[in-house]
Design a protein around this nucleic acid. Structure first.
Lengths: 214, 214
DNA sequence: GTCTATAAATTGATAGAC
DNA sequence: GTCTATCAATTTATAGAC
């Protein structure tokens, strides 16, 4: 493993270790509900999930769920908001590196690895926005805009100081994020890559895309 | 516009023009149903779509739908199968070019542009597989494996004859497909790119990823 | 082939006892 | 805070008239 690779892994792991999806839910019951909802939303989608699924997955009756959440949609919203906040934290932490080339490598590594390791959460985050109420969707859209802005800012910085050669910063940002996001759709544990290996590979491919010297 | 760019556009447009999603549905009624189902499945997902949505979208009663399709799931299956067949045709046509570098550029251009232009169809194709019965899902999985095999074959060919420098053919194939597929998730007409411009940009970015000389 | 009417099951959510 | 029981609405699908 080369120096750049080792550094990317180390920095990326530090960022990933700092993320805690569960911070918002304190009790065991809350966590059981949120965990069951995550599993079912990821597997069947929001509309394909009934309260019965969530109740059985968490060992409660459907009526008991309403003590903890006002509605099925509120449960999705809480989950989606927390997941988006985590993703934003991840991207911000990576982009904070003063060297744009390092920042991009670490960002793509950690973002990709997160989408592979936290595939369940990531699927809900990336693919269930359409089920939110208009008001809730607007909150989530704001978090997504923030994330995209951080990536565009990083690519702009790298392009200006000559670290990258990018024909279209906005388009390259979309491409970089797409690589990681789409992992949540197709990745299955036990396949040809570990999340770590896939993150490193995609970090290299993204570096090439941006015209970074190997 | 450079020569390579112009050639990519021309070849890609020829491929796209040869695709006909509707060939399978002959009558105006069938097309109205399929069109309404596509719209609603893409917007709300399969489970978020009721027969009432499809009936109203096609100007029929829910009962009349059953004259043309055995069930809601059979309708999704027919749609998904046709869309996957189209995507496979597209990829095969592009990969047939004897020059691997040209083939990759044309493939990414056409695949990306299709996901932008046919965003409605592409969303159903890429994101509604989970709603299929096990037997139907297996048919679709076969078409997806074929598509991936074509791309991996092309990248292997290009790597062997020196057109590309790819560290991991399988991983690079996944990345190339992800770029196009994820377009169906985020692309909205009227944004910063036309489907044509996005296809050209992504063809260039994919070329860089594969170590192709500009 | 299309309609109205309706069946049979499931859904999200609430009432009230403990 | 959890349960059983239940409501009101909606869902997929069918029956039968035209």
């Amino acid at each position: 493993m080369g120096r750049v690779t080792a550094d990317t892994t180390t920095a990326g792991e530090r960022i990933l270790a700092g993320l805690d999806l569960w911070a918002e839910w304190a009790t065991a019951t809350q966590r059981a509900i949120v965990g069951a909802a995550l599993e079912s939303f990821a597997e069947r989608g929001f509309h394909g999930t009934s309260l019965k699924h969530i109740a059985q997955g968490s060992g409660l009756s459907t009526a008991a769920l309403y003590v903890h959440f006002a509605s099925k949609e509120e449960l999705l919203f809480a989950l989606s908001r927390r997941g988006h906040a985590i993703a934003l934290d991840l991207v911000r932490a990576a982009a904070a590196d003063p060297d744009p080339a390092t920042a991009v490598r670490v960002l793509v590594y950690a973002f990709t690895r997160w989408h592979a390791e936290q595939r369940t959460t990531a699927r809900v985050v990336q693919y269930e926005q359409g089920a939110l109420t208009a008001a809730h969707a607007e909150v989530i859209a704001g978090l997504r805009r923030d994330t995209e802005r951080v990536v565009r800012g990083l690519l702009t910085r790298g392009a200006e100081d000559g670290a990258f050669t990018v024909p279209d910063v906005r388009g390259a940002s979309a491409a970089v994020l797409s690589l990681g996001i789409d992992v949540a759709r197709w990745f299955v544990p036990g396949g040809p890559w570990t999340p770590d290996a896939l993150g490193l590979l995609y970090a290299e491919l993204a570096g090439r895309m941006l015209g970074m010297p190997a």
